[in-house]
Structures are given as structure tokens and as C-alpha cells.
């Protein structure tokens, strides 16, 4: 069953495009990464799903129900963590979490304790006094305290230190093992790679691709730099999957997408002084493979 389904979802802000004709689905029990550069329309999509804004055309359902018509009903089972966390002034963490819990008509105090313990969040502090990372933690707890079936996260890891990030991903995996569906937006590919089953790629408001993580990993994007002993020749790299090829004297730089064995055989023929393989950033991948 599809937990989230959007059909030709389109949102224009006046004449400027938010998203256009976006159709995607999130299956029950999966973790879907929703990835794209800043300003691609990720937050717009999520805000449409929460009916904070209304679509220009198209529609969306969650748990098979229209997000506008059945908004309050479906939100009982949604946990949402916004990208930028804004909370009421002058509230303490405990007060905010209690206020949040008061909407679900059940006792969430045990879960609040559990989650804040796990994330090392001090409940007695005023929210205004918290650091960005700690505010994010409040966001995580308020998103999960009512034990929702669907978790929607908009750029959740910004501001969390690596250790906390690890804890947070563990937490998500645990939720996922318990049957929860997770919709996770990010602009950092490696982050999505760690945890997602499938990845939807969005750029300039349009869904470019939706594929399984396995498939994406086969497509192994690499940024390769070579320093050769003699003057380098670009001809060798005239194979599918190579782009952004720059050859200058004895320097070669390229982006590669495909089987690493193929490229390593080519490189093996060369007389190298230095050799570097790294992960390209998402912008580069978008620029060279999704235009």
C-alpha cells in the first residue's frame, strides 16, 4: 500500500514555480529519501502534504486519504519535523512537548522521557536558550512523541554533531523496523545513502528520478583526480559515464558514474604520480547527470 501518493502535484507562487507535475509514492514501511539541491521544491512538497499551503493543481493522499479533506484525521498518525525549527517564545522544552502531546489525547510522557534521554536533551531549559542543534533535538522529540505511523523529516540533520546524527539515524532505523514509514528530505546524498531504501530526486520543482538505493549505488558517482607522469591524454576516458572531463598538462579531473572496475582498468594503464577518488557533491551530480 502507498502511504503517500501525489498525483501531478503543482504549486506556483504567483508566477514563480514551486513544484510542477510531481507524482511520487512512498510505500508502507520504507524509508524514502527525497533529495535535491536547496530551493528545488522539497519543503514546498512537504508543506503541500501537510496542507499548510494548497496546490495550484494536482492532489495528494496520505494513508489513502486526501490531505486537504482529511487533514486533521491523517495528522494523528504523522510526525513532522520542519527544517528550520521555530517554537513559541518563553516556553520551556517540557512545556512545549506537553503542549504538543496535548493534541493527541494520549499519555506521551513515557515516550518524551525515553526520547529526550536518548538524545540527551535537557527538558528544563528555555527553548530560546538552546543551541541550533539542541532545538533540532526538540524537533525530533516533538515529531516522534505520539508514536506516528508516518514520519516526515525536512532536512533533519543540520546542526546535529556526528555522534548525535548517528544516534538519530539509529532511532529512525529502529522506528522503521517497528513498521514506520519515513519520508526524509535532504540535500546531502551520503546522508540519504546511509539509511534510505529508495531515493526520489527533485530539481527545479520537477521530479527527475525515483530509484532504489541499490540502483543508485550501482551508479556509484565518483569524482576522480589524476596526476600523471607524462602529459595526459583525454581520449582514454571517452567511455559512457564520464563527464566534466578536464585535461590540462598532467592533470586529469572527471566525474564518473558506473562500474568502478571499468574505470579502474583504464586508470591502471596510466603512469600515475598521484591519484584521488572522492564523492562528488550533489550539485555536481545534478549538474552533469540530471540536466
Amino acid at each position: 500500500m502507498d502511504i503517500i501518493e501525489t498525483k501531478n502535484l503543482t504549486k506556483f507562487y504567483g508566477s514563480s514555480k514551486g513544484i510542477e507535475d510531481l507524482s511520487l509514492n512512498v510505500k508502507e514501511g520504507e524509508i524514502l529519501g527525497f533529495i535535491g539541491p536547496n530551493g528545488a521544491g522539497k519543503s514546498t512538497t512537504i508543506r503541500l502534504l501537510l496542507s499548510l499551503i494548497y496546490p495550484t493543481s494536482g492532489s495528494a493522499t496520505i494513508f489513502g486519504k486526501d490531505v486537504i479533506k482529511y487533514g486533521p484525521e491523517i495528522k494523528r498518525q504523522i510526525g513532522y519535523m520542519p527544517s528550520e525549527v521555530f517554537y513559541y517564545e518563553n516556553m520551556r522544552v517540557q512545556e512545549l512537548l506537553d503542549y504538543s502531546a496535548s493534541f493527541y489525547g494520549k499519555d506521551c510522557s513515557k515516550r518524551i522521557k525515553e526520547l529526550s534521554g536518548l538524545l540527551k536533551l535537557d527538558l528544563t531549559k528555555k527553548i530560546d536558550d538552546l543551541s541550533y542543534g539542541n532545538k533540532k533535538k526538540v524537533g525530533i522529540v516533538q515529531g516522534l512523541l505520539h508514536d506516528p505511523d508516518l514520519i516526515i523529516l525536512d532536512e533533519p540533520t543540520g546542526g546535529l554533531d556526528p555522534l548525535m546524527q548517528k544516534n538519530f539515524f539509529e532511532l529512525l532505523k529502529e522506528e522503521n523496523r517497528a513498521g514506520k514509514t519515513i519520508f526524509f528530505s535532504s540535500h546531502i546524498l551520503s546522508e540519504v545513502q546511509k539509511i534510505c531504501d529508495r531515493v526520489a530526486i527533485i530539481r527545479e520543482g520537477t521530479l527527475i528520478n525515483i530509484e532504489s538505493m541499490e540502483h543508485l549505488l550501482q551508479n556509484n558517482y565518483k569524482r576522480i583526480h589524476l596526476t600523471t607522469a607524462k602529459k595526459a591524454e583525454g581520449k582514454l576516458f571517452d567511455i559512457p559515464g564520464v563527464s566534466d572531463l578536464k585535461v590540462e598538462k598532467n592533470q586529469v579531473s572527471l566525474l564518473y558514474k558506473g562500474d568502478v572496475n571499468t574505470i579502474s582498468r583504464i586508470i591502471a594503464q596510466m603512469d600515475l604520480v598521484d591519484f584521488m577518488v572522492g564523492e562528488p557533491d550533489l550539485e555536481e551530480i545534478f549538474m552533469h547527470y540530471y540536466t
Binding site: S51, L52, G71, P72, F86, Y87, F103
Partner: peptide, 17 residues
């Protein structure tokens, strides 16, 4: 103006409420 609507409206409440 305080951008808290994103918090509030993620709860199971209608706009009328």
C-alpha cells in the same frame, strides 16, 4: 509571523478549530 504555524498545523487540528 513567528513561524510557529508549521508546528501547530502539523497537529491533528482543523483550521476552523
Amino acid at each position: 509571523t513567528d513561524k510557529t504555524i508549521e508546528f501547530l498545523y502539523a497537529r491533528p487540528v482543523s483550521r476552523g478549530y
